[in-house]
Design a protein around this nucleic acid. Sequence first.
RNA 1: GCCUGGGUGGUGGAACUGGUAGACACGAGGGACUUAAAAUCCCUUAAGAUUUAUCUUGUGCGGGUUCAAGUCCCGCCCCAGGCACCA
Length: 822
Amino acid sequence: MTSLKPIPEYNFKEIEKKWKEKWKADKIYQLDLDKSKKPFYNLMMFPYPSAEGLHIGGVYTFTGVDTFGRFKKMQGYDVFEPIGLDGFGIHSENYAMKIGEHIKKVSKRTEKNFYRQLSSIGNMYDWSRTVETYKPEYYKWTQWLFLQLFKKGLAYQKKAKVNWCPWCKTVLSDEQVIQGACERCDSQVEKKELKQWFFKITDYAERLLKNLEWIDWSEDVKINQKNWIGRSEGAKIQFKIQNSKFKINVFTTRPDTLFGATYMVLAPEHQLIEKIKDRIENWKEVEKYINQAKAKSEQERKEDEKDKTGVEIKGIKAINPVNNEEIPIWIADYVLAGYGTGAIMAVPAHDERDWEFALKYKLLVIEVAKEKTNQKSKIKNQNFSSKIKSCFVGEGVAVNSGFLNGLKTSEAKKEMIKWLEEKGVGEKSVDYKLRDWCVSRQRYWGPPIPIIHCKNCGVVSVPEKDLPVELPEMEDFLPEGKGKGPLAKNKEFVKTKCPKCGAEAERETDVSDPFVDSAWYFLRYPSTEFENEAINKERSKRWLPVDSYIGGKEHTVLHLLYSRFITMVLRDLGYIHFEEPYKRFFGHGLITKDGAKMSKSKGNVINPDEMIEKYGVDTVRLYLRFLGDFSQGGDWRDDGADGMARFVKKVWQTFHELESQGQGVEKTQMIDKTIKTIGQDLERLSFNTAVARYMEFVNWVRENSEKFNQEQVEKVKETMALVLAPLAPHIAEEFWSELGNEKSIFTEEWPEFDENNLEDDQFELVIQVNGKVRDKMKVSRQITQEEAEKKALESEKIVKYLNGQKPKKIIYIKKKLINIVI
RNA sequence: GCCUGGGUGGUGGAACUGGUAGACACGAGGGACUUAAAAUCCCUUAAGAUUUAUCUUGUGCGGGUUCAAGUCCCGCCCCAGGCACCA
């Protein structure tokens, strides 16, 4: 390329600084939320920044979301791209404890650094609407939310087991328990029973499940949620206890196997045991087992999975309602207190766990289902015999089951339920794995739960006008160590008056789970300036639900489920008009280094500040986009980033060297094709291919650089800037202004393409013989099948392959290939 | 064990509803420019054979469907993430 013009140097520092300042000054990313005509809420998952600052993985996500947002903006949408941070929580608190600094101070520093880093990556955030969960003006409304649930009976207290670290003397979250040990000090974590606050998410289980049928999310995320909710259909069945008024209720998904129920099992925690204690002949033995089971840590229970233990309750029998057989009752910890009714009917012939248990304790096994009617029984009615190797858990046909004999499993289930309901000893029932959401945290760094405990009035909510219940300043925010949170140490905080009767009362000292903060933040963004309401209705109507939600796959269960639940509750209470918060959810992948997760301990963390300093943020953005599929993540490589820096420089050179020197290029399809494919790729978040298309485009421009005429040069330069803009905003904006435009490129429309100028008028026809490529030839796009066949059969090479044989069949795929079968 | 992704050159990765496997890069090799190096530009780069403008084999493994399979079906193996005695 020859050019007499001096080419300016690509000074990314200057350019990026210039445009960041200009965007800020012109407030181009701040919207009037009440006037926007085509609102598009482009949301990324609430970041939870660590004190060490953002790592490259964060930049990967944030700039990916932003690229999509900028693309939408160029499509004419009013894109709202808010930012904030989720600052409450145990991780930050632990970090502060570790470095011996106060959490408030640390958080302040973290926030400042985080926002500094975020503003360096060039995203189109609306900085006038930030949300930080630890600011009273935010958590006031988190507390308000708690009260709404409380009023509706959806927040309640009950005793529950928590993870307790005896060394740190504190409650741990499940994530802090690594293989049964404390994440920080490695001591064995114990289970401790404490009174906790819960949200009744189980009331919404059916709705949370049902809506999955219509929301437009990827299938894998839906399946995760579905499994988590864990709906199973079956029946509840009552078993009488012989000579007693008590009954045992069980839940089963296989009521059709009731004839094969040969014993029962209660969870060690089952309440019935206390009640019938007097009649238990081997009480000492039973008590010993119960105590052992309770003392077992999570870890030990898991280890014991294969080797089931239990003890028979002697002196008492249950009666199988379907045949009045007396069957023994056992206690075993393979039955969980928390699921179903905490008791089961054991059908060893058709349940793996019951089978193992029966095998160990030599209990009766009765086969009541077979795979096929004509099949010979593998299992005979017998006391355990070692010849039998496995049980049959699948669906089949009922046998040895009285009135069910011969029925298919699904039919047998229905018949049995009918029978149970007629006799009044059971009914159809649905159960879920989903548990109520424990929102209590016995820690300092969270929103205090707005509840007052009064001796006279009991549990009383803090009046809404008194919100927020501010988190008091406490020098010593370390956990107290008696199963209560640090707030319990603060007498001034605890001591209060009952809002109902005025008597001396005490404040609740638990704070709420950070998942509560993040379950509704997206509802707040459009309403940040309203001091007297959490969510402004008009704003919500215009802006919600969220149009695009992008975040990590690790949150596809809890966070997404919790925020769906809260959204439903708020809808039921009339605060919002929709019950599903996110129209589209996209889970992105993670950035690794040498195939491994980046972590401080491995020392393989890529610091984005250094990269931005070295390459400029446009290059970093482009490289991150190019490195792999957004949904899969990718592996960071330094030489890859170098390569991208070279490419950006090349783009810069090409753009500036371009002059009209020639007669014009004949075929300009590349321009239209580029606009089309990059647009398609950005729409489906296929960023890596979008960048590849751009590279192809630039290569084409360089190949033809001396042939373009004036008009073409203009078109090429424009295209070079416009389609690059979402990916590398600063350099694109620089190009745009060099082209003489006054307004920002982001106020510009995504370029149009000519649908009729996408393909060459020639294409390469592939000629196969028996499915193998034997020749290729350039032919006209208009070619008919007959012409194509004729040409193919005339080809020298093909003649050779045909070797005089007549084609049996010729398959012609339009504009692609022709396959001659001989 | 169960669920969900994924397995494609030396590397990262492309390939829409089955239709030219390896787009686009990185790395490597060779060449040009240079006193030299860097930078830049050009060429080669799946493997094997070879008559080098030719053929064969090739998308984790084994089968199958099809004119045609990375793509669909059946049976396995491996990696990553999630769940885990859920009756």
